[in-house]
Structure formats: structure tokens, C-alpha cells
Design a protein around this nucleic acid. Structure first.
Length: 603
RNA sequence: GGGGUGGUAGUUAAGUUGGUUAUAACGCCGGCCUGUCACGCCGGAGGCCGCGGGUUCAAGUCCCGUCCACCCCGCCA
């Protein structure tokens, strides 16, 4: 063990010392960030979590020490004792980029705590290394300032959250992670039980039922910063284990939950970024969002809104275009988006949009360039067949002027929306319509009035759009039996710059209504009892009206930090395949242990 | 499950119609250097071209398969 620290305890961090401390004897510890060896003057940048301080080794201070400094290498972990000196007074020049740039430490003691091998990549702010390598050497990656900043920010978000809810009388209570397996919804990770052989726990997808039972227990206001687990395919903003800020309140309406959530956002943005949000936030119904953006999490920082031409073309007998006619006959939808002349794209660039459309699953991209004072189309496959009346009507409906290009998608509504909203985001980025970097715009909005159910074409059944404990809108419970597809839900999502950051709802507190929803979902009485019997029973002892919300902490931190990936705000994330390349998880286990669990694996 | 992009030195990349010894920058190693802070100068080492097969006189380059990473669709109540 090193005696150095007992004789020379750390006196300062590497971001503290200024000319005020000139002449002081200090001790700094940290990592060698860089070396500049001038023979008679050896400089190193010493880095710790807080910043960087220059150390200088001089032969006239200690010839032996000066010689030893020659051996130092990048990322060695060292301790230095020395005198704070004014750089200018020493004949040097200040480094205005550093807070400590006017001073340096003239070293008189050096301790090498630990050497470092040659590095797989340099520890610097802007690295251009494949993520695979960063993950494999995560400790080096995490030493980089942008990563250190990300986790400091995440800490501030978490602390702000705890302070906010504490101040508002919420109780932070933990819920189980090993929970009852319930099929439906996200796929569960399974954990075999040794004590109850051949039976499995699921890792909790969310604490949904537990937090509702807290309300039945009379806890009134609950929150938790909690890990959740979902065994689904990964994305840049999805990890198999992730963290939610989970919230539930009794005796509230949608507005109450939203107001409490807005207060949280105000506090987080204030404490994490120093940004003042304006509340109340904007609200948009799900139907409006789908109509204008084809998406339930629209990025409202730019235009390029969608225009629905379906009824217009229906009125015009498809304008004589066979493709439109076919679409309408198949109960399809026709939507358009206008690319303004101001953002004119070359024909080659427009052709490339076809590839984008195909990647999104579309067949192709209908397009038309408006000409002759809005009476004609050029560069369009439809131009030859479409009626003059239809051209004029579409141009007017799209408010398209000469030189604008109308982009069209048609077919099944779901696909039209996927393709056209994907194309919209692509164009927003390509045309530079989304501000980024320092000039950050924060568009927060609520999406409200979601449908209660979605029809599953494959299964030929309804599925809960949010989850099956979501309350129907007032009056819609009467539709549950006859027309479930027409029911709306007391559900809401919080969207920030096109990212779904939170989602919640008012829950069902009436066991009769809850049973009706299960019926509509096609879950038999027996299955209801088997899967949710404990919960249905719990509902029967005086359940308060209640509702809540859950926020994706990782996504929120990703946005606030300006990170491109959720992995940059998770210390040890998994890759796209759900693998931890650092530790090698998942891995095979001993057959002895499998036998104990009464599990065999297929060859 | 499907589509796309990529994998060449420690790192990031270049590598022509297949053709001698596979380049460069940074990093690394050695030397010089008393005011640097992207220090500078001189010298040097470093390669299973992801992996496996095939075509060919000859493959980093062409073909087939496969693995890995990233992005997207499906999926994620």
C-alpha cells in the first residue's frame, strides 16, 4: 500500500487552484492526461473528475524527480505534491482554456499509484472510435469528460426528482423485481425458482400493479426511481433494463397528474440545465397528432405537416388516377407532405428519398412538382393521367405553390403513417430544420385522449393501447362491449422533441369496469382469475380513484445531455443484441446449477 | 423475423479494371529539446485485411456462407 497518501493527503482537486493559492504547498491526485517533454522542463496535465492542472518538473527543484518524470505515460494514476506557482512569473504563458490555467504545480514529490498499458484509444473529449471498442474498454470511455458530464447530469436529474416529490409529500417505496409472470404486453425476462421447481418469476416490466395497490393501501402519493426489464428488441433509445421515474396519485384527474408532472419537468430542467420551462405545456389529442404528423410522438420543432387527401380524392373519383382508385377501393388512405421550394432538392436527392421510403417499408414515393400557377404538375408519374380539377384541388388543399414538391403516400393507414412520419423526420434532419447543438429548442407537449384499444390484425383481437388498467373516457365504458375500437382512454404521453419521455393514465378503480375491459380484450373469466385474481380482489375493498405516470429516466437524460444514444447515459449498457460485451453476459451456466433448477437446455 | 451501413496496424481511415514489399494520420517505442499546453524535431517497431469456403496463375479487392457492431421496420400493453 502507498504511504504517499498518509503523508500527503489530497489537498485540492484539479479544478480548484488559482493565483490566490500561489506559494501554497498542495497535493493533487489523478491521471496523466498529456505529457509535454522539453528536456529541461517536463509538463504534464493532471486530470481528475473536476478538471485539469498543469504539473511542471524542473531539474533545479529536484534533479532526480525531474528524471523520473521522464518515465510517466498517459493515464498513469499518480499523486503529486508541490508548490503552486504563477505561470507568467515562471516565464510561461497562461492557458485560458483551463480554470487553473494561470498556475502550475512545481512538483517536489511524485507517487505512481498505478501504471497504465498502451491505450486502445485516447481518453479525450472527441473520439472517433467504434462503440464496440468503447464498450469493451468502458472504464477508459467513462473517464472522458463528456461521459463524466453525462453522469453528473443524470445525478442532478435524480436528485431534483427526489427533492421535488419529497417536497410534495410523495413517499418513495420499493416494489418487487421478481414478480408474477403475466403474458401479454412486453416479453418478460424469466427467472427460475429453485425453491418452487419448474416455476418461474418474471422480472418486472414496470411496477404498475404494485403502485396501484399502494393507492388501495392508502399511501396516496407514491414515487420510485426504479429499474424495469423488457425482453424486446433493442434500439438506440431502448435497453432491456432501464430506469423509470414511477409515479402514482390518489383522488386525481388527468389534469392533476399532468400538472404534477409539469412541475417535475420545470424542476429538472431548472436544476439540470438551468433552463426555465413555460407551463402549462401544450396539449394535442392523439387523433390530431396522427392527422398532422402521422405519429403519436411528434417532433413539433419543425413543420412539414401531413395533409390527408383521402376524402378529397374520394369526392373527385380519384382524379382519374388508377393507383388512387385502387387505394380508395381497399379502404386505404392517401396523405401528402409539401417540400417547399425554399428547401428545393435535386432530382437525384428526390430519388434518394425513394430509398428512405423503402427502408421504412413503403412501396414507393408519389411526387409532383407544382407548376403553372398551381394548375399543373411536373416530374410526376401521375401528371399524365390525373384530371386538371384534381391537380388544382390537391394543390389548394396542400397550400402548395409553384416549385413546391408534393410527396405522397397511400395504402394501409398504419403503413402510410410509418412511412410518411419517418420521411418527415428524415427531411427535418436533412434540411436542417431541427436546431441542435448549443441552440437547443425544447418542445414539450402532452398527447392526450389515446384510443383505449388497438386492433391486432394478426390476432384478430383488441389489445390495450396503453395497458389494461387504463380508464375509459367518461361515458365510453358503455361502448366496451359493442364497439371497443371507439373507446377513448384517460391516457396521456409526455413528448419532448419527438421522444416519448413519459406515459400514464387514470386507472380503473371499479372492479366491474375492470372486468368489462378484460372481457373486451378477450380474456376469459378463468384467465382473468388466474392472471390478475389477486388484483381484481384487491380492487374490491374500497379503491380510491387514482392515476399516475412513468417517465423514462434514461431517455430524459439522453435528451438533456444531447446524447445520440441512450447508451451514453447508462454506465454499463448492453449492445443491440442485448449482450454486455464488457463482462460477457449472458453466458452458459454449470449443468449442476441447471439440474438444481430442473432445467434442461435443448441441443 | 426483415431491410440498410460498416469491420484493413493500438485507433481512425485510404487502398484504382484482381497484379510486385498493403498506405497515411494519430497513438506506441527510442533519442534530442528550459515554457509547452493538438509542443516540436530525428529515428523505429507494429498487419490472421472479422471468420470460413469458393473462383483464379494471382483475392484486402470478385462470389457464397457466417460472426460482430450500429441504424431502421416489425416488436416494445
Amino acid at each position: 500500500m502507498s504511504e504517499f497518501l498518509s503523508q500527503h493527503p489530497r489537498t485540492h482537486t484539479c479544478n480548484q487552484l488559482t493565483k490566490t493559492e500561489s506559494g501554497n504547498e498542495v497535493v493533487l491526485v489523478g491521471w496523466v492526461q498529456g505529457l509535454r517533454d522539453h528536456g529541461g522542463r517536463r509538463f504534464i496535465d493532471l486530470r481528475d473528475r473536476y478538471g485539469i492542472t498543469q504539473i511542471v518538473f524542473k531539474p533545479e527543484t529536484d534533479a532526480k524527480l525531474h528524471a523520473r518524470a521522464h518515465e510517466l505515460r498517459s493515464e498513469w494514476c499518480i499523486g503529486v505534491a508541490g508548490t503552486v506557482e504563477d505561470r507568467i512569473g515562471n516565464g510561461g504563458s497562461p492557458n485560458l482554456k483551463l480554470k487553473t490555467g494561470e498556475i502550475e504545480i512545481n512538483a517536489n514529490q511524485l507517487e505512481v499509484f498505478s501504471e497504465a498499458q498502451a491505450l486502445p484509444f485516447m481518453v479525450e473529449d472527441h473520439i472517433d472510435t467504434h462503440e464496440e471498442k468503447r464498450l469493451a474498454h468502458r472504464i477508459l470511455d467513462l473517464r472522458r469528460k463528456p461521459m463524466q458530464d453525462n453522469f453528473a447530469l443524470r445525478h442532478r436529474v435524480v436528485q431534483a426528482t427526489r427533492r421535488y416529490f419529497d417536497k410534495n409529500d410523495f413517499l418513495e417505496i420499493e416494489t418487487p423485481m421478481l414478480v408474477k409472470y403475466t403474458p401479454g404486453g412486453a416479453r418478460n425476462f424469466l427467472v427460475p425458482s429453485r425453491l418452487v421447481p419448474k416455476n418461474f418469476f418474471a422480472l418486472a416490466e414496470s411496477p404498475q400493479l404494485f403502485k396501484q395497490m399502494f393507492m388501495m393501501s392508502g399511501f396516496d402519493r407514491y414515487f420510485q426511481i426504479v429499474k424495469c426489464f423488457r425482453d424486446e428488441d433493442l434500439r438506440g433509445d431502448r435497453q432491456p433494463e432501464f430506469t423509470q421515474i414511477d409515479v402514482e396519485m390518489s383522488f386525481v384527474t388527468e389534469k392533476d397528474v399532468q400538472a404534477m408532472s409539469e412541475g417535475l419537468m420545470v424542476r429538472i430542467f431548472q436544476e439540470a440545465l438551468g433552463v426555465q420551462l413555460q407551463t402549462p405545456l401544450l396539449r394535442m389529442t392523439y387523433d390530431e397528432a396522427m392527422d398532422r404528423y402521422g405519429c403519436d410522438k411528434p417532433d413539433t420543432r419543425f413543420g412539414l405537416e401531413h395533409i390527408d387527401l383521402t376524402s378529397l380524392l374520394s369526392d373527385l373519383q380519384s382524379g382519374g388516377v388508377p393507383l388512387f382508385e385502387q387505394t380508395l377501393a381497399n379502404k386505404g388512405m392517401i396523405k401528402a407532405m409539401v417540400l417547399p421550394k425554399a428547401h428545393e432538392l435535386s432530382r437525384a436527392e428526390l430519388d434518394k428519398l425513394e430509398d428512405v421510403v423503402k427502408q421504412l417499408g413503403g412501396q414507393g414515393l408519389g411526387r409532383a412538382k407544382v407548376a403553372e400557377s398551381g394548375t399543373a404538375w411536373t416530374q410526376s408519374p401521375f401528371a399524365k393521367v390525373i384530371s386538371a380539377e384534381a391537380i388544382k384541388a390537391i394543390n389548394e388543399k396542400c397550400l402548395a405553390k409553384d416549385g413546391d414538391v408534393i410527396l405522397m403516400q397511400m395504402g394501409r393507414p398504419k403503413l402510410v403513417h410509418t412511412v410518411l412520419s419517418g420521411l418527415r423526420l428524415h427531411l427535418g434532419a436533412k434540411l436542417g430544420l431541427i436546431s441542435n447543438g448549443n441552440q437547443t429548442t425544447w418542445n414539450l407537449l402532452w398527447i392526450t385522449d389515446f384510443p383505449l384499444f388497438e386492433y391486432d390484425e394478426n390476432q384478430k383481437t383488441y389489445a390495450a393501447a396503453h395497458h389494461p388498467f387504463t380508464s375509459p373516457k367518461m361515458g365510453d365504458e358503455n361502448l366496451l362491449k359493442e364497439n371497443p375500437g371507439a373507446c377513448y382512454a384517460k391516457a396521456y404521453d409526455l413528448v419532448i422533441n419527438g421522444n416519448e419521455i413519459g406515459g400514464g393514465s387514470i386507472r380503473i378503480h371499479d372492479p366491474v369496469v375492470q372486468a368489462k375491459v378484460f372481457d373486451a380484450l378477450g380474456i376469459s373469466k378463468e384467465a382473468q382469475e388466474e392472471k390478475f385474481g389477486f388484483f381484481l380482489k384487491a380492487l374490491c375493498y374500497g379503491t380510491p380513484p387514482h392515476g399516475g405516470i412513468a417517465f423514462g429516466l434514461d431517455r430524459l437524460c439522453m435528451l438533456l445531455s444531447g446524447s445520440q444514444s441512450i447508451r451514453d447515459v447508462i454506465a454499463f449498457p448492453k449492445t443491440q443484441r442485448g449482450v454486455d460485451v464488457l463482462t460477457g453476459a449472458p453466458s452458459p451456466v454449470d449443468t449442476k446449477q441447471l439440474r438444481e433448477l430442473q432445467i434442461i437446455t435443448l441441443p
